[in-house]
């Protein structure tokens, strides 16, 4: 068993054995789907999409981004607080291998979330999948990556679980509305629409919405992927610059 496989296994086991956390990771976006479904039922929003084709991609991308950010941030905070980072520091395994293993868990979680969520949206809410839906897959991968990288920044900043929750909520809840995931972007004032361009969720949501709704052809989701890569690089750079092996000094 190489180090990457071993840490991936350890992270999966740690994740799956926290049953409550697993259930709520998957239930959380579904709750929002139902709530927003009731609010927007029967309306056409965001340039003529049926409400479910607007709401489902928005809630899905937010729920997946949220889970990736929280998961990675909690893990990094715990590893540092429990001195596991220092244990890793003493071994010949490079840190990127260990973080890469945790990233694999975030990726797996996000993809399972997407399948489950889409199944419910199809079966219960009449979501329409256009022929270009597979284009949503690369967007999901790049989106999870960007939010996992943001999780590294939060996990480096926060020393306690309470701090992780406070910072992550403060980032994710306003972003849900400002990026157009929870609230149609064309109903916002012009300057807020401009601001949404500075948020990773805008591209994540847009890429999934366009792929699922069959808008914008092939090029658009890939532009969103490029933007998400830009965010990933910025977050990874900030995380690398601020990284700490230990909470002491």
């Amino acid at each position: 068993m190489n180090a990457y496989t071993a840490v991936t296994r350890a992270s999966y086991l740690a994740y799956l054995r926290d049953r409550t956390s697993v259930i709520f990771t998957f239930a959380f976006p579904l709750v929002f789907l139902i709530v927003f479904g009731m609010i927007f039922q029967g309306q056409a929003v965001d340039g003529g999409l049926s409400y479910i084709n607007y709401i489902a991609p928005g809630v899905l991308s937010w729920g997946i981004g949220n889970a990736a950010l929280f998961g990675v941030a909690f893990t990094l905070m715990h590893w540092r607080r429990d001195d596991l980072l220092r244990l890793i520091w003493r071994t010949p395994t490079p840190l990127p291998t260990v973080l890469g293993a945790r990233y694999a868990v975030a990726l797996g979680t996000g993809l399972v979330q997407a399948v489950l969520f889409t199944a419910v949206a199809l079966a219960a809410f009449g979501l329409h999948l256009s022929g270009s839906w597979p284009l949503a897959l690369p967007v999901l991968v790049f989106g999870i990556t960007a939010f996992a990288a943001l999780g590294l920044v939060v996990g480096t900043l926060a020393n306690t679980p309470e701090a992780v929750a406070a910072i992550a909520n403060c980032v994710m809840v306003p972003m849900a509305f400002l990026s157009g995931a929870f609230y149609p972007i064309d109903l916002m004032p012009g300057w807020l629409q401009g601001l949404s361009r500075a948020l990773p969720l805008r591209y994540f949501d847009e890429g999934v919405t366009d792929a699922v709704g069959g808008r914008g052809g092939i090029a658009l989701p890939f532009l969103d992927c490029a933007a998400l890569t830009g965010f990933t690089l910025v977050f990874a750079l900030i995380a690398a610059k601020t990284f700490r092996w230990s909470n002491r000094n």
Partner: peptide
């Protein structure tokens, strides 16, 4: 061995040590 015992979360003793073993290759 430091006083702050560093263990991987929610693992068994064997799983924890297998993970550490892999880190040491």
């Amino acid at each position: 061995q430091t006083q702050s015992s560093a263990f991987f979360t929610r693992l068994t003793a064997r799983e924890h040590l297998e993970t550490v073993a892999a880190l040491y290759r």
